[in-house]
Design a protein around this nucleic acid. Structure first.
Length: 818
RNA sequence: GCCGAGGUGGCGGAACUGGCAGACGCAACGGACUUAAAAUCCGUUGGACCUAACGGUCCGUGUGGGUUCGACUCCCACCCUCGGCACCA
């Protein structure tokens, strides 16, 4: 009698045994190749929803697959625990962020354990604990020492709701807070920055990593390198010491088409250059543009605005006098904060010129142009006209010629501009790692000595957001003495962006308890870099860019021997419910816990992988998961039924036995290949086909004991990464030694896996007219003769001329007739 | 607007390098088992048409064109969905 498949009993049983045996604990072992399989650690927001499972379960399958291929696999898990949500929850519920966070960690750890993943929990990392953030602070000091961290006053994104500044990457579409969707404002503040821009070109280079192309493109776009020329326009104004205004352009070929210059309203020269009679107008305009939200200001639909400031500059190439304007479509933060207006060849300048009635002079002629007015700006290349000695040049080479000329004359120089800004890491909030710096009236900015780390986050701070860091009001924290002169000093009260914590957590996993540094160099050398990183694409220009920068920075400080943290990256898609992204407000969040207790973790794991290609995501369907549960049930009964059945030593049907072995080896091959490429849906489809065949074999009783055993064992081994509990239980029940997860994947025999018989297709004029089973070794002549001798083919060829025969080995012949 | 991914039965999806479109699963329908239902097992299932039946013909992978003996696959133009970026000079 075959017992029922009861995941609710076998899953906890094996989980406990694996934990007790420390089956998933790993250590450095130079006798085996290592594999570092990392999944982005979750933020401690409360509950794991099915989206977390979609990230964790398939990556666990891959880690298990690598382990069964003989790798020494490091597969750790931890928690990203600092950050605003904890603080906001704390304010709302009146509980301390640490309490809230650790409760969530507790619950999420329990949920993660129910997944049955092979995490080495002894390496768990929680970023909000002093034993971790001590080293976050230590690394900050190293960056400061190396000149990669600096303090500066700059216009920054301010979220009035979160009451903190945000990095550019955390501002969606340049206008909204990533966390709370509130419109951000611009404020001038003294803040800490990391010099990520120094690494712009290296970050744009993905040639040494195997990442999805689209992430590379996203990072490249974000970095936004543009090669251009900084052109000097002459300024001659009594009482003004500046003798030029520099503009950045990628189109030096259009410099003879400049009919005006526009400065950003905040440009420092505006006040100096505005003529007395334009003063009122200009001041009004500046005030108006300050009043606007970033949303209004950056709207591309908005009509261009601006005003003349009553001053002129000289175009050094043409000698022309050019009026100076201000306009809020020019951004102070990009290039030089000033642009040359070339309305004929730039659509923004075109709009501006139309609005204010300025001349539009064509200097790059569109094909077939004969002097008529343009309807829109001509942005494409063309032939240069109205450009003095450069007339007649194709604009592409004109670009170079003018750049050369300007460099020679000292009118300008080639420069590179980036969209990427330095990474702003200060946050005016409580729940983060304190920035380990002290301000002393005598000594200025003084780093906290390494031996005084960690700078502990005081437990008793009043963490209501006020726009200033809550730590500012915690006198016992703020008041300190200068480490250098021992005089009175005050601590930095801002905390670090949490992306700083997640920029190095994967290093900590290599030696989590290490207390003489952030990591033990020996362990680091063995495990790092991460071989396979998996996670959502939403981190493309945040976490993934920051972490790459961070590693390059500490590489240059001599702390790590590599420059890329994640050799391979895979981005899973998004799992949706009822066609929509899951969200609490929509009420379509799928909680995995009830499915786990009803159907089992193995079913949930397998179902998530079966929905569709992992990188494309898919739709959670309550009915669909039943099919997976049924299949695992069938596997259960099939394997145990085979175990109970007394199969003959010699197969009653040799052909059928050979077919079984063929299918076994074909399946091993396909499943192994699919697992390696994260093609889980087809991997499972293949295993289903295989088990369907095994069902038939068993029902019809034509297998011998040995071939059956081979097939049944292969099925379990191939299923082990996906359904670890079921596979372990059946492995045990079929008399194998514990544990299936310490076994090697079965090897396939190419000869057995290859098809002996193939379905050969006979086409006439490209249409399938007949199919015949033939040996795979069939030759062209045989195939052709066979095709022509088929009765159906003969009937089709009746009264027609055979024009040619196309032969595709192992596939088909196509008879072309007239 | 720009960049990227995608569009295949009632649904999720498969199809290696241009060679049998729809694997595998869900749902649905029919049958077996059952007093009955659930569960389970067996079968049918892209559309239209021809045939008493066996079987066969035509159409069909977002739209329109092209290349080819042959196109879901390659090329050109376009439509739609999703993701990212967006006054970056």
């Amino acid at each position: 009698m075959i017992p029922r498949y009861t995941p609710s009993e076998i899953e906890p049983k094996w989980q406990e045994k694996w934990a007790a045996d420390q089956l998933h604990k790993v250590t450095e072992d130079t006798s085996r190749p290592k594999w570092y399989a990392l999944t982005m650690f979750p933020y401690t927001s409360g509950d794991l929803h099915i989206g977390h499972w979609y990230a964790m379960a398939p990556s666990d399958v891959h880690a298990r697959f690598k382990r069964m291929q003989g790798y020494n696999v490091l597969h750790p898990m931890g928690f990203d625990a600092f950050g605003l949500p904890a603080e906001n929850a704390a304010i709302k519920r009146g509980i301390h962020p640490l309490t809230w966070t650790m409760q969530n960690v507790e619950n999420m750890r329990r949920q993660l354990k129910s997944i049955g993943a092979c995490y080495d929990w002894s390496r768990e990392v929680v970023t909000c604990l002093p034993e971790y953030y001590r080293w976050t602070q230590w690394l900050f000091l190293k960056l400061l020492e190396g000149g990669l961290a600096y303090r500066a006053k700059a216009p920054v994104n301010w979220c009035p709701n979160c009451q903190t500044v945000l990095a550019n990457e955390q501002v969606i579409e340049g206008v909204r807070c990533e966390r709370c969707d509130t419109a951000v404002t611009r404020e001038d503040r003294e803040q800490w920055f990391f010099r990520i821009t120094r690494y712009a070109d290296e970050l744009a280079d993905h040639s040494r990593i195997e990442w999805p192309e689209r992430i590379g493109i996203m990072q490249k776009n974000w970095i936004g390198r543009s090669d251009g020329v900084e052109i000097s326009f002459g300024l001659d104004r009594s009482g003004v010491e500046e003798k030029e205004i520099r503009v950045f352009t990628t189109r030096p070929d259009t410099v003879f088409g400049v009919t005006f210059l526009v400065l950003a309203p905040e440009h420092p020269l505006v006040a100096k250059l505005t003529s007395p009679e334009r003063k009122t107008q200009v001041e009004e305009y500046i005030a108006a543009s300050r009043r606007q939200t970033e949303i209004e200001r950056l709207s591309t639909e908005k009509e261009k605005t601006g005003t003349f400031i009553g001053a002129y500059v000289i175009n050094k190439l043409s000698g022309e006098r050019i009026p100076l304007w201000i306009g809020d479509y020019v951004l102070l933060s990009y290039g030089t904060g000033a642009v040359m207006g070339v309305p004929a060849h730039d659509s923004r300048d075109f709009d501006f010129a139309k609005r204010f009635g300025m001349p539009i002079r064509v200097v790059v002629a569109p094909p077939g142009w004969s002097g008529e007015e343009l309807e829109t700006a001509h942005i494409e290349p063309g032939t240069m006209v109205n450009s003095s000695q450069f007339d007649g040049l194709p604009s592409e080479s004109g670009k170079e010629a003018i750049a050369d000329f300007m460099e020679k004359k000292g009118y300008g120089k080639r420069v590179v501009s980036y969209h990427l800004r330095d990474w702003l890491i200060s946050r005016q909030r409580y729940w983060g790692a304190p920035i380990p710096v002290v301000y002393c009236n005598a000594c200025g900015i003084v780093p906290v000595p390494e031996t005084d780390l960690p700078v502990l986050l005081p437990a008793d701070a009043d963490f209501r957001p006020t726009g200033e860091s809550p730590l500012l009001y915690c006198r016992s924290f703020v008041n300190t003495s200068c480490p250098r002169c021992k005089g009175p000093a005050r601590r930095e009260t801002d905390t670090m962006d949490t992306f700083m914590c997640s920029s190095w957590y994967f290093l900590r996993y290599a030696s989590p308890g290490y207390d003489r540094g952030p990591f033990d160099a020996k362990a680091l050398d063995y495990w790092l870099p991460v071989d396979q990183y998996t996670g959502g694409a939403e981190h493309a220009v945040m976490h993934l860019l920051y972490a790459r920068f961070f590693i390059k920075a500490i590489r240059d400080l001599g702390l790590v021997p590599f420059g890329e943290p994640f050799t391979r990256l895979f981005n899973q898609g998004i799992i949706v419910a009822q066609k929509h992204k899951m969200s609490k407000s929509r009420g379509n969040v799928v909680n995995p816990d009830s499915y786990v207790s009803e159907l089992g973790a193995d079913t949930v794991r397998a179902y998530l992988m079966f929905i569709g290609p992992w990188e494309q995501g898919g739709e959670w369907d309550d009915r669909g998961i039943n099919g997976m549960s049924r299949w695992l049930n069938r596997v259960w009964h099939l394997v145990l039924q085979g175990q109970e059945t007394a199969l003959p030593g010699v197969a009653p049907d040799q052909g059928a036995a050979r077919e079984l072995r063929h299918r076994t080896h074909k399946t091993i091959k396909k499943v192994t290949e699919d697992l390696g490429k994260f093609r889980y849906n087809t991997m499972l489809a293949c295993l289903m086909e295989f088990s369907n065949h095994l069902g038939k074999v068993l029902a019809e009783g034509y297998a011998d004991a040995q071939s059956w055993r081979e097939a049944s064992d292969a099925l379990l081994l191939l299923l082990a990464p996906t359904a670890p509990h079921l596979a372990e239980e059946l492995w045990d029940r079929t008399g194998h030694a514990y544990s299936i997860h310490q076994q090697h994947l079965p090897q396939w025999d190419e000869e057995l896996a290859a098809e002996e018989q193939i379905t050969f297709v006979i086409q006439i004029n490209g249409k399938v007219r007949d199919k015949v089973m033939v040996p795979a070794s069939i030759s062209e002549a045989e195939a052709r003769d066979l095709a022509l001798s088929q009765p159906r083919v003969k009937a089709f060829l009746e009264g027609k001329q055979l024009a040619s025969v196309v032969y595709v080995p192992q596939k088909l012949v196509n008879l072309v007739v007239k």
